[in-house]
Amino acid sequence: MKIAYPTQKEIDDSISRVIEEACPARENVFIFLYRLYREIGFLDVMHGMEKIMVPLIAAYAFGIVYLANNVTASASDLYLSVILFSPLVFQLLLCLFFLGEQEQGVYEIELSCKYTMYHLLILRMGIAGLFSVAVNGMALVLYGVSQDFFGGTLILRLAFLAVSTFLVYFTVYVHLILKSVRIQYQLSLYFTWCVVAVLIRLYIPGMFAYLAMELPLLIHVCIWGAMLGLLMRLLPDVIYRNGKYNLNIGE
């Protein structure tokens, strides 16, 4: 059998195909997500969730101010509450997203598009995360003002701890999402988180004091780096639905 010699175009095409398949250009996942966010836009990412966010902040801020004025807390109570509260807004918002998604059943179409609801999910996690950090930051400042804490390093430490705990929670959350997206599991995760923190505080006070109150700020920064690195590796798995249960919402 005689095989025709390939044309230059065929040669070029197959070379570029081999290169493309062998070494796909990897864009940083955060840059990709930012570009996607710009493309989709805030309102379409949030789907009416922005309406829930306003009362949520209001209730949250009110609660914090109320606590600040009516409860005298020891320093370790403060640290504990930072650990308990920093993932709360994030987790609540995401549960609401899932509820909305389930209730409206829009995910079937969203899953069949080029960008699926898992792309949306990550954008929502990002927004819920930023929002959570902002709300908690504001709460800390409010608290600091009402208690005249400014001048001390306490607020700074609390802020570092808040960011660290949030990023750790975020990373654990993404692991969970890769196993199952069920809301019950998400709520159990938050519940377990709180129970573990309280138990450590009560029964291993030395460890609590070290981890929450005395950890050098540099180590906090290292934790941020490590968590962001982990997230960078995990988030594409969410997008490409590489989880154990394939993240199949409809099953």
């Binding site: 989709i40 009416g48 409206q104 829009v106 079937e108 598009c113 960008y115």
Partner: peptide, 22 residues
């Protein structure tokens, strides 16, 4: 059974899906 955002108009909904479709 297709779900939809109840408060979207047909036009907005289709434009939204178009964005997801790139």
């Amino acid at each position: 059974h297709f779900g939809y955002y109840r408060d979207y108009s047909a036009e907005r909904y289709l434009k939204y899906i178009a964005v997801l479709k790139g």
